[in-house]
């Protein structure tokens, strides 16, 4: 067993957080509330270290006072908590959301739309390779039918309904793949904690 007190604290907190899966209890509530508080505080401290403190030099050392304007825009968010002044926070939200929307319009079209559409333009017959031909057909038909499924302005009857059904089947395969991978991710997370408990704490594994 480890003799490091930090490892013991870590083990206690880990077991306290795990205990919720069996029954809601005081240890869990303690660890849960401590985590929420610590994480909120951690975020503030990291932002202070990494940006607020070093960027303050622009004003105090370099005398670039115009940077006070974005700081004020940022601080306006807190007017939400002042009765009668909450509407002022809209300036903050509008600025942040406006720049964000500008970014999406400037960047998303080519990279997330055109390039993905272009990658779907595959030859539907590849001589000498039956597998590639099948793969390309599945890919093209799959993408088109899934997009068709989400086209809600067309009544899905007859051929339109058949294409929509193909889209559903393709999505089911994709969701199955997503589920399988999600299980793997969750097991990995738990594995990591068990590696700590059995290795670093109990020294049962190297």
């Amino acid at each position: 067993m480890s003799t490091n007190p930090w490892v013991w604290i870590q083990a206690f907190l880990t077991l306290a957080l795990f205990s919720i899966i069996f029954v809601d209890n005081g240890f869990y509530k303690f660890a849960e509330h401590a985590y929420v508080g610590l994480y909120a505080g951690y975020t503030v401290v990291v932002t202070w270290f990494s940006y607020i403190r070093p960027s303050s030099q622009w004003i105090f050392r370099d005398h670039k006072y115009h940077y006070i304007i974005p700081i004020i825009i940022g601080l306006l968010i807190y007017t939400r908590y002042i009765k009668g002044w909450a509407w002022v926070s809209r300036y903050n939200m509008a600025f942040m959301v406006g720049v964000g929307a500008g970014f999406v319009l400037a960047r998303d079209f080519k990279s997330l739309l055109l390039d993905q559409v272009r990658a779907t333009f595959k030859p539907l017959f590849v001589s000498g390779s039956l597998l590639t031909t099948i793969n390309n057909i599945v890919l093209v038909v799959g993408v088109v039918s899934v997009m068709w499924y989400f086209l809600f302005t067309v009544e899905k009857k007859g051929t339109a309904g058949t294409i929509s059904s193909i889209g559903r089947v393709v999505m089911m395969v994709a969701f199955g793949s997503a589920f399988g991978n999600t299980v793997m991710a969750r097991v990995s997370l738990f594995l990591g904690r068990l590696q700590f408990l059995l290795g670093d704490w109990l020294k049962l594994i190297q």
């Binding site: 990279s111 390039d115 993905q116 990658a119 997503a178 991978n181 990995s188 594995l191």
Partner: peptide, 26 residues
């Protein structure tokens, strides 16, 4: 990526926008 992200990453690998992936714990 973590495994949860693998299915969503595959279209980008397929399109060549991502050159390869170290996918999940595997």
């Amino acid at each position: 990526t973590i495994s949860v992200e693998v299915p969503g990453t595959m279209p980008y690998i397929n399109s060549g926008q991502v050159l390869g992936g170290v996918l999940g714990m595997k």
